[in-house]
């Protein structure tokens, strides 16, 4: 089926009005993921933007039409390991067990439990929506914030110019766990994202699956609310966020033959507005290096 028909015909399982910001990339991804997953799903959302926006419920009300849990920031994967083991033992492998976590709950606080669950090969799908920071509490830096980002804990001033460290590249770390399925997705390439979520759910019946979604944040990154998709598209086209998937060790990389310069993306975002041409050249070099590494891995 055409992905547009699939989305049109499937039911929206998220509450109609939630307090995510205008133009939120994570809200878009959550709705599309659940439209693909369907009703037979158990979702777990650790503290973060989507939990704060009321998806896990508020004042004894539900935010979703399916079961949803809010574990702690650091135990999402281990919590779901228990849930999925119970369902396997009750002979209900048809239930989709999905985590929808932010980058803080994935790469920082929740990394230990995530890495453990991936190594054990628990049958679940872990989705990370990466908005490069702790957006729910006011854009503090996280380990996936890209180099040079202005955040509220790495401000721009006399002492420092934004974040001085390079980001932790989470999808590759997860690919090195040798799990069933690892993919990166972007809301701008929606057909690709729908396919990857479908594949991820199928792979989660056999073992651990991980999907890393690029999720632009108008409030934190400082772009207009209507530019969300454009920012995601430029991130893909400039190789700032390369799209790849690893299916049982088999690599597939979406290779842009003629990438746009990364400055096209950085100039859109106010969090990078202080960068000098030298800084931008440095980021371009990092992006090119990472792309080379991915090319080598996918060719091997």
């Amino acid at each position: 089926m055409n992905y547009i028909d699939l989305i049109r015909q499937s039911e929206d399982l998220v509450t109609a009005g939630m307090s995510a910001c205008q133009g939120c990339g994570a809200e878009l991804c959550l709705r599309r993921v659940l439209q693909v997953a369907g009703r037979n799903t158990i979702l777990s959302i650790p503290p973060g933007c989507m939990a704060g926006a009321g998806v896990v419920g508020w004042n004894f009300d539900n935010g979703l039409k399916i079961p949803v849990h809010i574990p702690l920031l650091d135990n999402t994967a281990s919590f779901l390991s228990g849930v999925t083991n119970m369902y396997q033992r009750k002979n209900r492998p048809d239930v989709n067990i999905i985590a929808f976590a932010g980058d803080g709950a994935t790469a920082d606080c929740g990394f230990q439990s995530l890495s453990g669950a991936a190594e054990r090969g628990e049958k679940l799908l872990y989705i990370c929506y990466d908005n490069e920071g702790y957006m729910n509490t006011g854009f503090q830096r996280s380990s996936t914030s890209s180099k040079g980002s202005r955040t509220s804990t790495t401000p721009v001033g006399k002492v420092q110019d934004g974040k001085s460290q390079n980001q932790k590249y989470m999808p590759l770390i997860m690919a090195m766990h040798n799990v069933e399925y690892v993919a990166t997705a972007s809301p701008s390439n929606m057909k690709d994202m729908v396919d990857k979520v479908t594949k991820g759910i199928q792979a989660s019946k056999k073992g651990f699956a991980y999907i890393h979604i690029f999720s632009p944040c108008p409030t934190g990154w400082g772009h207009e609310t209507d530019q969300t998709i454009e920012v995601a598209r430029k991130a893909v086209k400039s190789n700032f966020f390369p799209l790849f998937e690893v299916e049982q060790g088999k690599w597939k990389l979406l290779d842009n033959k003629n990438p746009i310069p990364v400055s096209d993306l950085l100039n859109l975002l106010r969090k990078f507005s202080h960068l000098s041409p030298d800084d931008i050249a440095q980021i371009q070099e990092l992006v090119d290096k990472r792309m080379d590494l991915l090319r080598k891995l996918s060719a091997a």
Binding site: T15, G17, M18, F60, D61, K65, I66
Partner: peptide
């Protein structure tokens, strides 16, 4: 029939986001 798990007292939490 409508929901797999019991929902809260009022059902589904919705905000009037149209007023934004």
């Amino acid at each position: 029939k409508k929901f797999i798990t019991p929902v809260g007292d009022e059902g589904i939490y919705t905000l009037d986001t149209g007023s934004w």
